[in-house]
Write a protein that binds this DNA or RNA. Structure first.
Lengths: 171, 171
DNA sequence: AATATACTTTACAAATGTGTAAAGTTTTTA
DNA sequence: TAAAAACTTTACACATTTGTAAAGTATATT
Protein backbone atom coordinates (compact mmCIF):
# COMPACT_ATOMS: atom_id res chain seq x y z
CA UNK A 1 0.00 0.00 0.00
CA UNK A 2 1.74 3.08 -1.11
CA UNK A 3 1.53 6.60 -2.45
CA UNK A 4 2.44 6.58 -6.14
CA UNK A 5 5.14 8.82 -7.61
CA UNK A 6 2.63 10.86 -9.56
CA UNK A 7 0.52 11.45 -6.45
CA UNK A 8 3.45 12.64 -4.45
CA UNK A 9 5.14 14.78 -7.08
CA UNK A 10 1.81 16.19 -8.21
CA UNK A 11 1.02 17.17 -4.64
CA UNK A 12 4.42 18.78 -4.32
CA UNK A 13 3.82 20.90 -7.40
CA UNK A 14 0.46 22.00 -6.02
CA UNK A 15 1.96 22.93 -2.67
CA UNK A 16 4.69 24.89 -4.41
CA UNK A 17 2.05 26.78 -6.37
CA UNK A 18 -0.04 27.27 -3.25
CA UNK A 19 2.84 28.94 -1.47
CA UNK A 20 3.29 31.55 -4.17
CA UNK A 21 0.54 33.67 -2.76
CA UNK A 22 -2.93 34.38 -4.11
CA UNK A 23 -3.22 34.94 -7.86
CA UNK A 24 0.50 34.52 -8.39
CA UNK A 25 1.55 32.20 -11.16
CA UNK A 26 4.59 30.10 -12.02
CA UNK A 27 5.74 28.55 -15.29
CA UNK A 28 6.51 24.88 -15.73
CA UNK A 29 10.20 25.70 -15.78
CA UNK A 30 9.93 27.56 -12.50
CA UNK A 31 7.94 24.84 -10.81
CA UNK A 32 10.39 22.20 -12.06
CA UNK A 33 13.20 24.27 -10.63
CA UNK A 34 11.47 24.70 -7.27
CA UNK A 35 10.83 20.97 -6.89
CA UNK A 36 13.99 19.61 -8.48
CA UNK A 37 12.00 17.81 -11.19
CA UNK A 38 12.59 17.66 -14.93
CA UNK A 39 10.67 20.09 -17.07
CA UNK A 40 9.14 17.24 -19.10
CA UNK A 41 7.86 15.44 -16.03
CA UNK A 42 6.57 18.58 -14.39
CA UNK A 43 4.79 19.27 -17.63
CA UNK A 44 3.01 15.96 -17.45
CA UNK A 45 2.02 16.45 -13.81
CA UNK A 46 0.62 19.92 -14.38
CA UNK A 47 -1.26 18.66 -17.40
CA UNK A 48 -3.02 16.05 -15.27
CA UNK A 49 -3.85 18.61 -12.60
CA UNK A 50 -5.23 20.97 -15.21
CA UNK A 51 -7.45 18.32 -16.78
CA UNK A 52 -8.86 17.61 -13.33
CA UNK A 53 -9.57 21.29 -12.74
CA UNK A 54 -7.18 21.85 -9.86
CA UNK A 55 -4.94 24.31 -11.65
CA UNK A 56 -5.54 26.84 -14.40
CA UNK A 57 -3.10 27.20 -17.28
CA UNK A 58 -2.31 30.48 -18.93
CA UNK A 59 -0.81 29.81 -22.33
CA UNK A 60 1.59 31.82 -24.38
CA UNK A 61 4.44 34.07 -23.47
CA UNK A 62 4.22 35.24 -19.88
CA UNK A 63 1.91 32.32 -19.09
CA UNK A 64 2.06 29.79 -16.30
CA UNK A 65 -0.17 28.05 -13.78
CA UNK A 66 -2.28 29.11 -10.84
CA UNK A 67 -4.32 27.12 -8.37
CA UNK A 68 -7.88 27.05 -9.68
CA UNK A 69 -9.68 27.29 -6.34
CA UNK A 70 -9.22 28.84 -2.89
CA UNK A 71 -6.70 26.73 -0.99
CA UNK A 72 -9.11 25.75 1.76
CA UNK A 73 -11.50 24.39 -0.86
CA UNK A 74 -9.03 21.82 -2.17
CA UNK A 75 -8.65 18.79 0.06
CA UNK A 76 -5.85 16.26 0.05
CA UNK A 77 -8.53 13.82 -1.04
CA UNK A 78 -9.29 15.90 -4.14
CA UNK A 79 -5.61 15.98 -4.99
CA UNK A 80 -4.94 12.27 -4.55
CA UNK A 81 -8.08 11.28 -6.43
CA UNK A 82 -7.17 13.63 -9.28
CA UNK A 83 -3.70 12.18 -9.54
CA UNK A 84 -4.30 8.53 -8.71
CA UNK A 85 -8.00 7.76 -8.96
CA UNK A 86 -10.43 6.76 -6.20
CA UNK A 87 -9.15 4.87 -3.17
CA UNK A 88 -11.17 1.85 -4.20
CA UNK A 89 -11.30 1.01 -7.87
CA UNK A 90 -14.93 0.62 -8.98
CA UNK A 91 -13.82 -2.23 -11.25
CA UNK A 92 -12.05 -3.88 -8.41
CA UNK A 93 -14.05 -7.09 -8.33
CA UNK A 94 -13.47 -7.71 -12.02
CA UNK A 95 -9.78 -6.81 -11.97
CA UNK A 96 -8.93 -8.72 -8.83
CA UNK A 97 -10.93 -11.83 -9.50
CA UNK A 98 -7.96 -14.15 -9.88
CA UNK A 99 -8.34 -16.60 -12.72
CA UNK A 100 -12.11 -16.49 -12.73
CA UNK A 101 -14.48 -14.11 -14.48
CA UNK A 102 -15.87 -13.08 -11.14
CA UNK A 103 -14.28 -13.02 -7.72
CA UNK A 104 -15.34 -16.09 -5.72
CA UNK A 105 -16.43 -13.82 -2.87
CA UNK A 106 -18.50 -11.53 -5.04
CA UNK A 107 -21.67 -11.64 -2.99
CA UNK A 108 -20.17 -11.51 0.46
CA UNK A 109 -16.56 -10.60 0.89
CA UNK A 110 -15.05 -9.75 4.25
CA UNK A 111 -11.81 -8.65 2.61
CA UNK A 112 -13.70 -6.14 0.50
CA UNK A 113 -15.57 -5.05 3.60
CA UNK A 114 -12.45 -4.39 5.59
CA UNK A 115 -10.60 -2.71 2.73
CA UNK A 116 -13.65 -0.60 1.97
CA UNK A 117 -13.84 0.31 5.64
CA UNK A 118 -10.20 1.26 5.53
CA UNK A 119 -10.76 3.41 2.44
CA UNK A 120 -13.61 5.23 4.22
CA UNK A 121 -11.44 5.79 7.25
CA UNK A 122 -8.60 7.16 5.14
CA UNK A 123 -10.99 9.40 3.30
CA UNK A 124 -11.96 11.11 6.53
CA UNK A 125 -8.37 12.14 7.06
CA UNK A 126 -7.90 13.20 3.46
CA UNK A 127 -11.03 15.33 3.25
CA UNK A 128 -10.18 17.01 6.56
CA UNK A 129 -6.79 18.12 5.30
CA UNK A 130 -6.75 21.04 2.89
CA UNK A 131 -4.04 22.38 0.66
CA UNK A 132 -4.10 25.42 2.90
CA UNK A 133 -3.17 23.23 5.86
CA UNK A 134 -0.37 21.50 4.00
CA UNK A 135 1.13 24.63 2.54
CA UNK A 136 0.83 26.92 5.55
CA UNK A 137 0.70 24.89 8.73
CA UNK A 138 -0.34 21.37 9.52
CA UNK A 139 -2.82 20.70 12.33
CA UNK A 140 -1.07 19.98 15.61
CA UNK A 141 -0.01 16.40 16.14
CA UNK A 142 0.67 15.74 12.49
CA UNK A 143 4.35 16.40 12.55
CA UNK A 144 5.02 14.29 15.61
CA UNK A 145 3.00 11.48 14.09
CA UNK A 146 4.99 11.77 10.91
CA UNK A 147 8.27 11.53 12.79
CA UNK A 148 7.07 8.48 14.70
CA UNK A 149 6.17 6.87 11.43
CA UNK A 150 9.65 7.39 10.05
CA UNK A 151 11.13 5.84 13.19
CA UNK A 152 8.89 2.81 12.72
CA UNK A 153 9.95 2.47 9.10
CA UNK A 154 13.61 2.71 10.02
CA UNK A 155 13.23 0.13 12.77
CA UNK A 156 11.59 -2.25 10.32
CA UNK A 157 14.43 -1.73 7.88
CA UNK A 158 17.06 -2.36 10.53
CA UNK A 159 15.35 -5.58 11.59
CA UNK A 160 15.09 -6.65 7.98
CA UNK A 161 18.81 -6.08 7.44
CA UNK A 162 19.61 -8.01 10.59
CA UNK A 163 17.61 -10.96 9.33
CA UNK A 164 19.36 -10.88 6.00
CA UNK A 165 22.78 -10.78 7.63
CA UNK A 166 21.92 -13.76 9.80
CA UNK A 167 20.84 -15.58 6.65
CA UNK A 168 17.59 -15.94 8.52
CA UNK A 169 14.50 -15.83 6.24
CA UNK A 170 14.50 -12.11 5.37
CA UNK A 171 13.38 -10.56 2.04
CA UNK B 1 -2.84 5.29 -3.52
CA UNK B 2 -3.84 1.74 -3.66
CA UNK B 3 -3.71 -1.75 -2.22
CA UNK B 4 -1.40 -3.89 -4.37
CA UNK B 5 -2.49 -7.19 -5.88
CA UNK B 6 -0.14 -9.18 -3.67
CA UNK B 7 -1.44 -7.47 -0.54
CA UNK B 8 -5.02 -8.20 -1.39
CA UNK B 9 -4.62 -11.76 -2.63
CA UNK B 10 -2.23 -12.59 0.19
CA UNK B 11 -4.78 -11.31 2.70
CA UNK B 12 -7.46 -13.39 1.04
CA UNK B 13 -5.37 -16.52 1.37
CA UNK B 14 -4.79 -15.79 5.04
CA UNK B 15 -8.47 -15.20 5.68
CA UNK B 16 -9.32 -18.43 3.90
CA UNK B 17 -6.84 -20.28 6.13
CA UNK B 18 -8.13 -18.47 9.21
CA UNK B 19 -11.64 -19.70 8.54
CA UNK B 20 -10.62 -23.34 8.46
CA UNK B 21 -10.70 -23.57 12.22
CA UNK B 22 -7.86 -23.91 14.69
CA UNK B 23 -5.02 -26.24 13.72
CA UNK B 24 -6.65 -27.18 10.45
CA UNK B 25 -4.49 -27.01 7.37
CA UNK B 26 -4.99 -26.59 3.65
CA UNK B 27 -2.73 -27.33 0.70
CA UNK B 28 -1.77 -24.79 -1.94
CA UNK B 29 -4.12 -26.49 -4.36
CA UNK B 30 -7.00 -26.24 -1.91
CA UNK B 31 -6.33 -22.59 -1.12
CA UNK B 32 -6.04 -21.78 -4.82
CA UNK B 33 -9.37 -23.49 -5.37
CA UNK B 34 -11.03 -21.63 -2.49
CA UNK B 35 -9.87 -18.23 -3.75
CA UNK B 36 -10.10 -18.81 -7.49
CA UNK B 37 -6.38 -18.21 -7.96
CA UNK B 38 -3.82 -20.18 -9.96
CA UNK B 39 -1.78 -22.75 -8.08
CA UNK B 40 1.48 -21.07 -9.15
CA UNK B 41 0.42 -17.67 -7.89
CA UNK B 42 -1.01 -19.02 -4.66
CA UNK B 43 2.29 -20.77 -4.22
CA UNK B 44 4.16 -17.51 -4.47
CA UNK B 45 1.82 -15.75 -2.04
CA UNK B 46 2.08 -18.47 0.58
CA UNK B 47 5.82 -18.51 0.18
CA UNK B 48 5.99 -14.79 1.05
CA UNK B 49 3.70 -15.27 4.03
CA UNK B 50 5.81 -18.17 5.26
CA UNK B 51 9.06 -16.22 5.01
CA UNK B 52 7.46 -13.46 7.05
CA UNK B 53 6.37 -15.93 9.71
CA UNK B 54 2.62 -15.55 9.29
CA UNK B 55 1.97 -19.10 8.12
CA UNK B 56 3.67 -22.41 8.79
CA UNK B 57 4.35 -24.86 5.99
CA UNK B 58 4.17 -28.62 6.39
CA UNK B 59 6.07 -30.24 3.56
CA UNK B 60 5.63 -33.57 1.91
CA UNK B 61 2.63 -35.73 1.29
CA UNK B 62 -0.30 -34.72 3.45
CA UNK B 63 1.30 -31.33 4.01
CA UNK B 64 -0.16 -27.86 3.74
CA UNK B 65 -0.29 -24.55 5.55
CA UNK B 66 -1.59 -23.30 8.85
CA UNK B 67 -1.70 -19.85 10.38
CA UNK B 68 1.40 -19.48 12.54
CA UNK B 69 -0.18 -17.47 15.38
CA UNK B 70 -3.50 -17.04 17.17
CA UNK B 71 -5.80 -15.05 14.91
CA UNK B 72 -6.19 -12.17 17.32
CA UNK B 73 -2.42 -11.77 17.43
CA UNK B 74 -2.13 -11.04 13.71
CA UNK B 75 -3.16 -7.54 12.75
CA UNK B 76 -4.04 -6.26 9.33
CA UNK B 77 -0.95 -4.09 9.71
CA UNK B 78 1.24 -7.19 10.13
CA UNK B 79 -0.28 -8.70 7.01
CA UNK B 80 0.07 -5.64 4.79
CA UNK B 81 3.62 -4.96 5.94
CA UNK B 82 4.57 -8.59 5.33
CA UNK B 83 3.15 -8.50 1.82
CA UNK B 84 3.93 -4.96 0.76
CA UNK B 85 6.51 -3.43 3.09
CA UNK B 86 6.10 -0.52 5.52
CA UNK B 87 3.61 2.24 4.76
CA UNK B 88 6.45 4.72 4.37
CA UNK B 89 9.56 3.61 2.59
CA UNK B 90 12.62 4.42 4.73
CA UNK B 91 14.49 5.27 1.52
CA UNK B 92 11.73 7.54 0.43
CA UNK B 93 13.69 10.79 0.30
CA UNK B 94 16.37 9.26 -1.88
CA UNK B 95 13.96 7.50 -4.21
CA UNK B 96 11.58 10.40 -4.63
CA UNK B 97 14.10 13.18 -4.98
CA UNK B 98 13.29 14.00 -8.60
CA UNK B 99 16.34 14.67 -10.71
CA UNK B 100 18.52 15.67 -7.81
CA UNK B 101 20.61 13.55 -5.45
CA UNK B 102 18.58 14.83 -2.55
CA UNK B 103 15.01 16.03 -2.38
CA UNK B 104 14.92 19.83 -2.37
CA UNK B 105 12.75 19.75 0.74
CA UNK B 106 15.00 17.40 2.65
CA UNK B 107 15.28 19.45 5.81
CA UNK B 108 11.73 20.63 6.10
CA UNK B 109 9.04 19.05 3.98
CA UNK B 110 5.37 19.64 4.61
CA UNK B 111 4.44 16.98 2.06
CA UNK B 112 6.47 14.40 3.96
CA UNK B 113 4.90 15.62 7.17
CA UNK B 114 1.38 15.22 5.93
CA UNK B 115 2.00 11.88 4.25
CA UNK B 116 3.78 10.63 7.35
CA UNK B 117 0.86 11.80 9.44
CA UNK B 118 -1.45 9.95 7.10
CA UNK B 119 0.62 6.79 7.43
CA UNK B 120 0.43 7.00 11.21
CA UNK B 121 -3.31 7.50 11.05
CA UNK B 122 -3.73 4.51 8.75
CA UNK B 123 -1.56 2.42 11.00
CA UNK B 124 -3.95 2.96 13.88
CA UNK B 125 -6.73 1.40 11.90
CA UNK B 126 -4.57 -1.45 10.67
CA UNK B 127 -3.20 -2.41 14.06
CA UNK B 128 -6.68 -2.29 15.57
CA UNK B 129 -8.02 -4.78 13.06
CA UNK B 130 -7.06 -8.42 13.57
CA UNK B 131 -7.33 -11.40 11.30
CA UNK B 132 -9.89 -12.69 13.79
CA UNK B 133 -12.03 -9.62 13.12
CA UNK B 134 -11.76 -9.95 9.38
CA UNK B 135 -12.43 -13.67 9.24
CA UNK B 136 -15.20 -13.87 11.83
CA UNK B 137 -16.97 -10.58 12.16
CA UNK B 138 -15.95 -7.04 11.47
CA UNK B 139 -16.47 -4.36 14.13
CA UNK B 140 -19.81 -2.57 13.72
CA UNK B 141 -19.78 0.32 11.30
CA UNK B 142 -17.18 -1.22 9.03
CA UNK B 143 -19.54 -2.77 6.57
CA UNK B 144 -21.69 0.33 6.17
CA UNK B 145 -18.56 2.39 5.68
CA UNK B 146 -17.35 -0.04 3.06
CA UNK B 147 -20.62 0.16 1.16
CA UNK B 148 -20.54 3.96 1.24
CA UNK B 149 -17.05 3.83 -0.16
CA UNK B 150 -18.15 1.71 -3.08
CA UNK B 151 -20.99 4.14 -3.80
CA UNK B 152 -18.48 7.00 -3.83
CA UNK B 153 -16.22 5.13 -6.21
CA UNK B 154 -19.11 4.36 -8.54
CA UNK B 155 -20.28 7.95 -8.51
CA UNK B 156 -16.80 9.11 -9.43
CA UNK B 157 -16.72 6.63 -12.29
CA UNK B 158 -20.08 7.74 -13.59
CA UNK B 159 -19.01 11.38 -13.53
CA UNK B 160 -15.79 10.48 -15.29
CA UNK B 161 -17.69 8.69 -18.05
CA UNK B 162 -20.04 11.63 -18.43
CA UNK B 163 -17.09 13.98 -18.92
CA UNK B 164 -15.57 11.69 -21.53
CA UNK B 165 -18.83 11.48 -23.44
CA UNK B 166 -19.19 15.24 -23.47
CA UNK B 167 -15.63 15.43 -24.81
CA UNK B 168 -15.13 17.59 -21.75
CA UNK B 169 -11.63 17.27 -20.22
CA UNK B 170 -11.99 13.72 -18.79
CA UNK B 171 -9.17 11.10 -18.62
C1' DA C 1 12.72 -48.35 -2.61
C1' DA C 2 9.44 -46.38 -5.65
C1' DT C 3 5.79 -43.35 -6.21
C1' DA C 4 2.64 -39.80 -5.36
C1' DT C 5 1.72 -35.68 -2.94
C1' DA C 6 2.96 -31.24 -1.78
C1' DC C 7 6.05 -27.42 -0.59
C1' DT C 8 10.24 -24.45 -2.78
C1' DT C 9 13.00 -21.96 -5.92
C1' DT C 10 14.24 -19.70 -10.04
C1' DA C 11 13.56 -17.81 -14.36
C1' DC C 12 10.76 -15.50 -17.39
C1' DA C 13 6.74 -13.23 -20.07
C1' DA C 14 3.14 -9.78 -19.89
C1' DA C 15 1.14 -5.64 -17.99
C1' DT C 16 1.51 -1.39 -15.65
C1' DG C 17 3.82 2.67 -14.02
C1' DT C 18 7.61 6.09 -14.43
C1' DG C 19 9.99 9.44 -16.75
C1' DT C 20 11.95 11.45 -21.26
C1' DA C 21 11.92 13.38 -25.90
C1' DA C 22 10.28 15.74 -29.60
C1' DA C 23 7.11 18.08 -32.33
C1' DG C 24 2.95 21.07 -32.02
C1' DT C 25 -0.05 25.03 -30.59
C1' DT C 26 -0.97 29.49 -28.38
C1' DT C 27 0.06 34.13 -26.99
C1' DT C 28 2.84 38.17 -26.34
C1' DT C 29 6.30 41.36 -27.78
C1' DA C 30 9.25 43.67 -30.93
C1' DT D 1 4.48 39.34 -39.05
C1' DA D 2 8.38 37.08 -37.11
C1' DA D 3 10.37 35.37 -33.04
C1' DA D 4 10.40 33.98 -28.38
C1' DA D 5 8.14 32.16 -24.36
C1' DA D 6 5.33 28.81 -22.58
C1' DC D 7 1.61 25.42 -22.50
C1' DT D 8 0.07 20.67 -24.97
C1' DT D 9 0.18 16.24 -27.03
C1' DT D 10 1.98 11.94 -28.47
C1' DA D 11 5.19 8.43 -28.66
C1' DC D 12 8.51 5.82 -26.57
C1' DA D 13 12.25 3.70 -23.45
C1' DC D 14 13.01 1.94 -18.95
C1' DA D 15 11.64 -0.07 -14.42
C1' DT D 16 8.59 -2.40 -11.49
C1' DT D 17 4.84 -5.35 -10.61
C1' DT D 18 2.06 -9.21 -11.76
C1' DG D 19 1.40 -13.77 -12.82
C1' DT D 20 3.12 -18.24 -15.08
C1' DA D 21 6.08 -22.22 -15.90
C1' DA D 22 9.19 -25.60 -14.90
C1' DA D 23 12.45 -28.01 -12.37
C1' DG D 24 13.74 -29.18 -7.62
C1' DT D 25 13.28 -30.87 -2.69
C1' DA D 26 10.88 -33.17 1.16
C1' DT D 27 7.72 -36.54 3.22
C1' DA D 28 4.33 -40.23 3.62
C1' DT D 29 2.39 -44.36 1.79
C1' DT D 30 2.61 -48.74 -0.56
Amino acid sequence: MRITAIEEYGLRCLVALARLGPDEQASITEIAEMEGLSVAYTSKLLSILRKKGLVTAIRGRGGGFTIALPLNQISLYDVLVALGGPLIDPHHCEKRSGQLEQCVHLKSCSVQDVLGGLAGYIQEFLTDTSLQDIAFGLPSGFIQRAKNQIIIANTALKKELQNVNEGDSGA
